[in-house]
Amino acid sequence: MKPAAWIPAWIPAIAVAALAWAAPAAAHDTPIALLTLKETQPGTFVERWTYSSSLNIAAPTPVYPEHCVAEAPRVVCGELGLTGDFSFEKLGERYSAAVVRLMPLEGPKRSYTFTAAQPVITLTASGILPLSHIVAAYIPLGFEHIMLGIDHLLFVLGLMLLVSSPWMLVKTITAFTIAHSITLGLATFGVIGVPEGAVNALIALSIVILAVEVLKLRRGRAGWSATYPWVVAFGFGLLHGLGFASALTGIGLSQANLPAALLFFNIGVELGQLAFVAVVLAVAWSHRQLRAELPRWTETVAVYGTGTLATVWFYDRFGAIVAPLVT
């Protein structure tokens, strides 16, 4: 099998490696602020913030319905209760999303997810969310999660370099999609649970392994991974799905909203993934069309760079797991 020369490695690798360098080891952190509002008396709530961002930056400012009076940590809404337009200021600048978990005196707990695309939600007494809200909140969240997840993108890039034809690319990306959808669903519904740190370390390792396979292929030693790249995509896709799930499991969604939220979050992830693949293919095609291609050694350097970066991530993430056990 010939090396995958139809996608010059250096084109996307230069850009993605630059992005990757800019991202820390916890690259696919999607910062989410969680605000729990517990009703202590009828119409009176107490705020409690939880930041799920590893950076622990200040929470966004909530804007309560007009009839509510907020004197942190108490929020008094009176007889009308917590109904009406609820929003957050400057959401999207520091946090990807804010989740409000409402714990009323009576009735089930409810969760509302705010994003830059869905900054205002009209709360109702029944707590039922329209489908349009879930679509508007979770598709951007999924899209953003993979776009911030440089390690996921690097893995997809590695898959693209491993395949030798457009049809094989379709099969490989499809296998990756199916696999990560399976584990994303299982983890979100709580069927399986894997420590986030270990998952992140293994995701970094998956990029290292893929980089090695790409280098072997470019030296003319096509292994089984180049012959059956969709098997690799499926296997490691299961792992990446657990990584995607971290953005959803931390939110604490109510069971009623979970299936739709999962579906549209996954659609957002797929859209982001397809957008990335489309841009890489378009740029690669453009360079071929314009005959602006570079020597092969530059491609090799790009793959080595990507593998080295992923190795650093792996040690960093692995160290974060081991360090507490040693000290």
Partner: peptide, 20 residues
């Protein structure tokens, strides 16, 4: 490529993930 790689010191990384 070299300039891009060298121009991103580790502390800069926070900005990529801490904003939308």
């Amino acid at each position: 490529a070299l300039a891009l790689l060298l121009s991103f010191p580790e502390p800069a990384s926070a900005h990529l993930v801490s904003t939308r």
